[in-house]
Design a protein around this nucleic acid. Structure first.
Length: 578
DNA sequence: GCCGTTTTCGGCCCGACTGTTTTCAGTCG
């Protein structure tokens, strides 16, 4: 049983109970149990089998029994029962901004509205205006909300969120009324997809700053405008919130709006346990305000080391920072070179030499070229002759490029039976091989896909496993497979796991990195670049690695060129000797 | 439903904004 299925089940139970107007504290209990299980390092199935689920703080006897029953039978009677009471369309209605459980329930019970379509019709017929708690304005807002969720997927990729955030930062950053200003929210945390963008500013003239914000270039629509809080929609549909506070409040507000909500909840609980109270304006002991000029001081006051934004997901980071500890996290400057880029030999847009020079400009010591293999017809995969031509060109370039080295590699398709795409003697002539699935995954079930990946990992020529889950964010789900088994096999075979830094992939998922760390396997932060700007995607990869708590030593491409060359040789030799 | 250095009962994180109210409920983060 997948942990995420348990977490989703508990979340859905909480939501449905809320819609059914059950005790809000009971609802919260399910929510916090769900979060606690999501954040736990423990083997949930094992704890369930030994009746020890209540060891997890936030999981009591009742929920523990439910989860255990769910794991055993694969179905949750409680959830089924709740689902039978709430039409699915009613749950869908809650996606509309401004509709929470209470209002949705009113629409459902008072107006017999059971789906988004019926709601849209009712608004068009002006039938909500007379309903208690609603009015003309809410009717309009609901219609706009429906249009919005139809027009835009509810989430955006990280780069789109960053672009919107930087646009606002640029138009407000130089204003004399702005004292400090920073991007907060999920963009700052480096989440792979974001729902909206949060920006925090300090000022003594908030009204002026708010004026600038709602009239900034690129703003399409103003949603809200208070004295301290405003919200707009940018062209392209990204929702941006701005919060303006006094400068002494700024670090607390920045921390608060960086979130995550779960991290904040845990931090406030910690403050409370230490006899303090924390909110977005400050930290207080009794009525006395505790001065902190930076986020670092806030963490310090609470007996913690600085927790970088990427880590703030309440997935163990607070325990790790206990006593002032600050576990090292990889930074972009730690990368000494990169693997996995494409050139005009296959579907890249730049020549080998142009890409090499672009890497040199970025201060890297080496690059590992990995064009597509011959099965990837659609991407101009390389024939054996193409590979040889490329190899000759690399030899020439390695002669003339001063202080830079190109490693010879390929991104070999993992064929349906798990074998690689070239004969062994060809693979043996390469410095490294990235093995990736690109084709024939749609009909594979979990067992078959796992076997296929395992077979590829077992090849002594496989150096790295490329984009392990195959997901395309907001577009394609990961293929089904046993990730735990794949990670263990990689560790055992010394196969490096790719963290594909393309912002549409960010694959392996950072949530798996804790597991990778435990097995001792290494990751490589690979740009998978097809053009020059794609090289800078490693920045997204670094953020994802940091979210997973990855130290520089765990990242293959933090090694310098000589060490990488030696390591590639040594690994190949060890595996051929096995 | 969960939890416990005030508690096995009585609490449960906190504040801004909106729209509908005529002092506040609901939503959101």
């Amino acid at each position: 049983m997948d942990r995420s299925r348990i977490v989703e089940t508990l979340e859905e139970i909480a939501l449905l109970k809320e819609l059914l107007d059950e005790n809000p504290f009971k609802v919260r209990a399910y929510q916090s149990a769900s979060r606690a299980i999501a954040a736990s390092d423990e083997d949930i199935a094992l704890l369930a089998a030994t009746r020890e689920l209540t060891k997890i703080k936030g999981v009591g006897k009742s929920i523990a029994d439910n989860v255990a029953a769910f794991i055993e039978s694969g179905a949750s009677p409680e959830l089924e029962e709740l689902r039978s009471k709430v039409p699915p369309g009613v749950v869908e209605m809650m996606r509309i901004p401004g509709l929470g459980p209470k209002k949705t329930r009113t629409l459902w019970h008072e107006m017999d509205i059971k789906c988004v379509g019926e709601l849209e019709y009712a608004c068009g017929e002006n039938r909500l205006a007379e309903l208690k708690g609603f009015g003309q304005k809410s009717q309009e807002n609901i219609l706009e909300g429906i249009a919005l969720i139809k027009k835009f997927a509810a989430r955006f990729l990280l780069p789109e969120g960053m672009a919107a955030a930087h646009a606002i930062m640029e138009s407000l950053g130089d204003a004399p009324e702005v004292i400090r200003m920073a991007i907060a929210g999920s963009v700052r945390r480096g989440r792979e997809t974001v729902k909206d963008v949060d920006i925090v500013a300090s000022s003594n003239a908030p009204e002026k700053v708010m004026d600038l914000f709602v009239s900034a270039p690129g703003v399409e629509k103003m949603l809200a405008r208070g004295s301290t809080k405003g919200a707009v929609i940018m062209e392209g549909g990204v929702h941006v919130d701005l919060r303006i506070v006094s400068d002494r409040e700024f670090p607390f507000t920045l921390h608060h709006f960086t979130g995550s909500k779960e991290h904040n909840t845990a931090m406030r609980a910690r403050a409370q346990a230490m006899g303090m109270k924390m909110n977005e304006y400050g930290l207080f002991r009794d009525e006395e305000r505790i001065v902190c000029v930076s986020e670092r001081e806030i963490f310090h006051t609470l007996g913690l080391g600085y927790i970088p934004p990427e880590r703030r997901e309440n997935m163990g980071e607070i325990a790790e920072a206990e006593g002032g500890a600050e576990p090292p996290l990889v930074e972009r400057k730690d990368l000494k070179g990169i693997f996995h880029l494409h050139t005009t030999y296959s579907d890249g847009l730049e020549t080998l030499e142009t890409m090499a020079r672009a890497c040199m400009e970025r201060g890297w010591e080496y690059m590992g070229v990995a064009d597509h293999s011959r099965a990837a017809h659609y991407a101009g995969g390389l024939s054996i002759d193409d590979l040889k031509r490329q190899s000759d060109e690399i030899d020439r370039l390695n002669e003339i490029l001063d202080g830079f080295h190109i490693f010879k590699g390929v991104e070999s398709d993992i064929l349906a039976d798990g074998s690689l795409d070239y004969p062994e003697d060809i693979l043996a002539g390469l410095d490294f091989v990235i093995a990736s699935v690109h084709l024939r995954y749609k009909k594979e079930d979990e067992a078959k896909m796992t076997r296929r990946l395992m077979a590829a990992i077992m090849s002594p020529y496989t150096t790295m496993l490329g984009h392990p889950t195959g997901r395309l964010l907001l577009a394609r789900d990961p293929y089904p497979m046993d990730m735990g088994a794949v990670i263990e096999a990689c560790a055992e075979q010394e196969v490096v796991i790719e963290l594909n830094a393309n912002p549409q992939r960010l694959d392996i998922d950072w949530r798996e990195l804790g597991k990778v760390k435990k097995t001792g396997a290494m990751i490589s932060i690979n740009p998978d670049a097809h053009r020059i700007p794609g090289l800078d995607h490693v920045g997204y990869g670094v953020m994802a690695a940091r979210k997973g708590g990855v130290a520089p030593e765990m990242v293959f491409n933090t090694m310098g060129v000589d060490q990488v060359a030696a390591e590639l040789k040594a690994r190949r030799a060890r595996r051929l000797g096995k």
